[in-house]
């Protein structure tokens, strides 16, 4: 039996994978875009279809996330508009850098090194944040205070009572946009820390605004690829069925589990991502198939581990169980 030309097994695989990604997205507000495209590539989809379908899926999932955050008043439209305009310009700049580097023949090497380095850096920062919470929070507050004390007009007041220079927001968006265009990624994993630690925007509003920005850029990206028919609509449809449910489970878990308890796992996932990309590239350059397998296992294993940790930690809280082996493991 087939549904939209897909076997029941594949339908279950896509819904299950969507559930996993949705749980991560609902809990952390990020972590979706860098999992779907590699998964589709591994399954043998052409690279344009993998990227186009990945973007369409990110668009659909972020629509669901943005609706939820809007209902809770956690979206700052001023911040989203400034960031979107600045990032769009930045992305064009980043693309120009890529074309320039392609002409010199150094694009692949530099992009991969920068991608691995950034993932590792954000992973290490998150890990440090998880281990020494008080000190890091103080240091990040210092940075946000300093940024808020710079009065370059026009000044804007954001949700949560944060007053900051629109010029600085624009500058940060521009830099993140250049990095996004250069690396070919959504930029969510850079935008959210920049808003929280750099501007001092409350975490919930940073997540909500980040998701709205991802919705807009995801729609634009999906549109671009769909023009050449490079979006596998059934794949996106089944992934969304799972991710919409997962997003609710992940969001529900945030009410039960302290994010700091899981942060270590999330940092490990980012670090595993950086090792996976490095392993994949080295494997491709030297023709070592084993390294490609290591890369795939690392990406999916880490995603499965972190989403399971989120769900298990939530179940432990519901049962008031802090002594069981699994409960101690998920919250250590």
């Amino acid at each position: 039996m087939a549904i939209f030309g897909m076997s029941l097994v594949m339908v279950a695989v896509f819904i299950g994978f969507g559930l996993l990604i949705g749980t991560l997205f609902g809990f952390f507000g990020m972590g979706g875009s860098f999992l779907v495209t590699p998964a589709l590539l591994v399954m043998g989809y052409p690279s344009t279809v993998a990227v186009g379908s990945g973007l369409a899926f990110v668009f659909g999932t972020s629509v669901i996330g943005a609706l939820r955050h809007r209902d809770h008043g956690q979206v700052d439209y001023k911040l989203a508009v400034i960031m979107t305009v600045a990032m769009t310009l930045g992305i064009e700049g980043g693309k120009s850098v890529v074309f320039f580097l392609e002409a010199t023949g150094m694009a692949d090497l530099l992009i991969n090194v920068a991608y691995v380095g950034l993932l590792a850096a954000v992973g290490l920062l998150t890990l440090r944040d998880a281990w020494s919470d008080a000190e890091t929070t103080e240091a990040s507050n210092d940075l946000a205070d300093r940024v808020q004390s710079i009065h370059i007009p026009p000044m804007v007041t954001l949700r949560g009572g944060v007053r900051v220079s629109a010029t600085i927001i624009f500058g940060i968006g521009l830099v993140i946009g250049v990095l996004s265009g250069f690396l070919g990624v959504g930029g969510g994993f850079l935008l959210m820390p920049a808003m929280m630690y750099g501007l001092g925007v409350p975490a919930a509003i940073a997540v909500g605004t980040d998701i709205l920005q991802i919705t807009i850029s995801g729609a634009f990206g999906a549109f671009t690829y769909a023009r050449s028919g490079s979006v596998a609509v059934p794949v996106v449809a089944f992934l969304l069925i799972g991710s919409a449910l997962g997003a609710r489970i992940g969001a529900g878990a945030t009410n039960l589990v302290d994010e700091d308890e899981i942060k270590g796992y999330f940092a490990a996932m980012l670090l595993a991502g950086s090792v996976a990309v490095a392993s994949n590239k080295i494997g491709a350059v030297y023709g070592i198939d084993f390294l490609n397998t290591v890369s795939t296992v690392l990406i999916f294993g880490a995603a499965l581990l972190v989403s399971s940790a989120v769900v298990l930690a939530a179940i432990c809280r519901l049962r008031n169980d802090e002594t069981g082996m699994w409960c101690r493991l998920t919250t250590s």
């Binding site: 369409a56 668009f59 659909g60 669901i64 609706l67 769909a226 996106v236 969304l240 919409a244």
Partner: peptide
């Protein structure tokens, strides 16, 4: 395509 994904997302929500 974008409209279809948007409609599915809203319906699922």
């Amino acid at each position: 395509t974008v409209g279809l994904v948007l409609a599915e997302a809203i319906a699922l929500y």
